[in-house]
């Protein structure tokens, strides 16, 4: 295969992905390409299925139909072992952090290392401290328990845990929600840094337009189970797409109607 052909295979290619819960069709035919080494930001209203989308890629939710190709190989057609190996190359920052509250911070950060590479605890501690330093936390934080951290610190620890094993494909589910604007900018900076340093591919979900602008090489809008728009972040505010326009400007009137009751 020529270099050009290799480069043409996106890191992640999703085709016709569908997932419903009961009568509700959450994902209704998602098509999405993420070229290697780029950052995609997914935006969309609350409950539009953004978290479900990345949980499908991670194998945490079994989709009803479609294909998810990682480096050109369909994850959904793999056996359990192959899929576990594929997921091992991914890192995920969960929407609410999802830190293990029965383990101290450093063991949270080193968890993937301990599980995968069978490193000793002493070495794992050293690696955890190094990763904590990357997200701006002192080694002493490693001895605290997750419940003792502020929300912003929890997000940073969760980020540290996600990147500790240097994954190829990173997912960030609302990394800056609930943080003050400065801490939000700091986290965005960390994400951009990390992705660049690791040379990873990243998919981030956010409601924060400023954050999207900072992180994204490309932005995709999810609405009614489909990607309705995709483009460069600097065209986000002037997309000409009525749905994107309403979302980015936060207007009450428009094609997106919040269903208060189902």
């Amino acid at each position: 295969m020529s270099d050009a052909a290799v480069a043409a295979v996106p890191k992640l290619r999703i085709r016709g992905l569908r997932k419903g819960f009961g009568a509700k069709q959450v994902l209704d035919g998602i098509d999405l390409d993420v070229p290697a080494g780029t950052s995609l930001v997914v935006i969309g209203g609350s409950g539009s299925g953004k978290s479900v989308l990345i949980k499908c890629v991670l194998g945490l939710i079994e989709p009803d139909a479609g294909t998810i190709e990682l480096d050109g190989r369909n994850l959904l057609a793999m056996d359990r072992e192959g899929r576990e190996r594929a997921v091992a190359t991914m890192g995920m920052l969960f929407q609410n952090g999802a830190l293990f509250d029965s383990l101290p911070v450093w063991e949270n950060v080193a968890f993937g290392l301990l599980a995968r590479h069978r490193v000793g605890r002493r070495e794992a501690r050293g690696r955890a401290d190094a990763v904590l330093a990357q997200v701006g936390l002192a080694p002493s934080v490693g001895d605290l328990w997750p419940a003792e951290l502020s929300g912003g610190m929890q997000k940073r620890v969760a980020l540290a845990r996600a990147i500790a094993a240097a994954p190829d494909l990173l997912f960030f589910d609302e990394p800056t929600t609930g943080l003050d604007p400065i801490m939000g900018a700091v986290i965005d900076g960390l994400i951009v840094d990390v992705v660049k340093r690791l040379g990873s591919t990243a998919i981030a979900i956010t409601h924060d337009m400023a954050s999207a602008m900072r992180i994204a090489d490309s932005v995709a809008m999810l609405h009614k189970g489909r990607i309705v728009w995709q483009g460069a972040p600097d065209t986000l505010m002037t997309s000409g797409n009525a749905i994107v326009d309403q979302f980015t400007h936060g207007r009450r009137e428009g094609p997106i109607t919040m269903e208060l009751r189902r």
């Binding site: 949980k55 194998g59 945490l60 091992a88 995920m92 293990f100 993937g112 845990r161």
Partner: peptide, 13 residues
């Protein structure tokens, strides 16, 4: 309910 079980899976456990 806090996604910790899902987090285990993403950390090869």
């Amino acid at each position: 309910v806090t996604d910790q079980i899902d987090a285990l899976t993403t950390l090869s456990t």
